[in-house]
Nucleic acid binder design. Sequence first.
DNA 1: CCATTATTAGAACGATCGGTCAGTATAATC
DNA 2: GATTATACTGACCGATCGTTCTAATAATGG
Lengths: 197, 197
Amino acid sequence: MARRTAEEAEQTKQAIAAAAKQLFIQQGYQATSMEQIRESSGMSKGSIYYHFKSKEQLFMYLLELNMVDWIFKCTERFKLVSTATEKLYAIAHHFAHDFENPLMQASMEFSGTKGADPEVIEKIVEMSKFPLPLILDVIKEGIQQKEFAEDDPEKLALLLYSVLGGLGIIQFDNYSLEELEFIHRKAIDVFLNGIRA
Amino acid sequence: MARRTAEEAEQTKQAIAAAAKQLFIQQGYQATSMEQIRESSGMSKGSIYYHFKSKEQLFMYLLELNMVDWIFKCTERFKLVSTATEKLYAIAHHFAHDFENPLMQASMEFSGTKGADPEVIEKIVEMSKFPLPLILDVIKEGIQQKEFAEDDPEKLALLLYSVLGGLGIIQFDNYSLEELEFIHRKAIDVFLNGIRA
DNA sequence: CCATTATTAGAACGATCGGTCAGTATAATC
DNA sequence: GATTATACTGACCGATCGTTCTAATAATGG
């Protein structure tokens, strides 16, 4: 079997991408082999390399997809609320719920890969910070609206990003989703309390 | 050349450990090869495997050493201050300054390693949380001394641990040590402000 | 001073890695 | 219906992985 329709080919590509994504999230970048992706996706080695020119590029593809999806969902949520405070809770909720986000972990690990294209590394490092501008905007808005006390928005944004990122990275094997979400809300509670006007 | 004195042998072991530590921190666990450790330490493959029975065990050895050192330094600092608030600043300072701590990153990545001994994985996951009890104690003390508002100490400890861990993990390529320390202090400021009695 | 043992060196191992390639089959094009 | 471009297969590649093994040598105990 070969030469599917363009539509079917796209399905193949997405099957590979989906399998790869799951494995990268579960095991990290380096621990995931192309052989595993082949097995999990049910496609052949050749097919993978037909759609993606390298493991690096496959990973990049996933990161980009993940990023635009994340930002889209977040801005959608923003439309439902009005205050900066509510927006921060929305972001936290997003961090807690988004299973897809753990790609962040994999992308931090990626930097260490030997022989990796420096250009790709820099691009990935840059991309892993994508939620920062969003957070920054909300904090600026909060300060302007007098919801939050006057302070350096850049530093506060970095702080909140670290909290949420840290919460996502720390191993929570024995926590339920509810507890997890609770902790994320708690994080915002404390943070808000700390910067309130 | 072979058969050094016991003292010289220990030096060899420590040279290997030191080289490995640096590489694990810089590149992560999987990206660091035994060949690199051999080259960097200047010792031979045989020598490495004489002192450490596997890459896993070498990594474990470093983690344990790092942990006791961290705790020791921290409790030493605690003796110089009195309030829980001051202790939190001390912990933050420790997180910011301790270059050695980035082993945490490597230990989180380790979990994904294929074929890794599950027993070792669990042990490492457990070990990576070592600062938690310390933080928990301080927070309990702070609540008891009425420095902090009444709250669930477990959750607050997890929160602070995530903040500091997150700050340590996020890529700060373009930040100086001073800025880094500043941000860590700022984190405690906001956190303290958020939980103050 | 001899036998033993601790410590090193480095060649070699099988396994697995990411990646390539010649070949095939079919949809699309004309 | 012949031709061409596309989608895919699976065997295969050299490199590198963690690890093992044998041999050499120097310190140690008798």
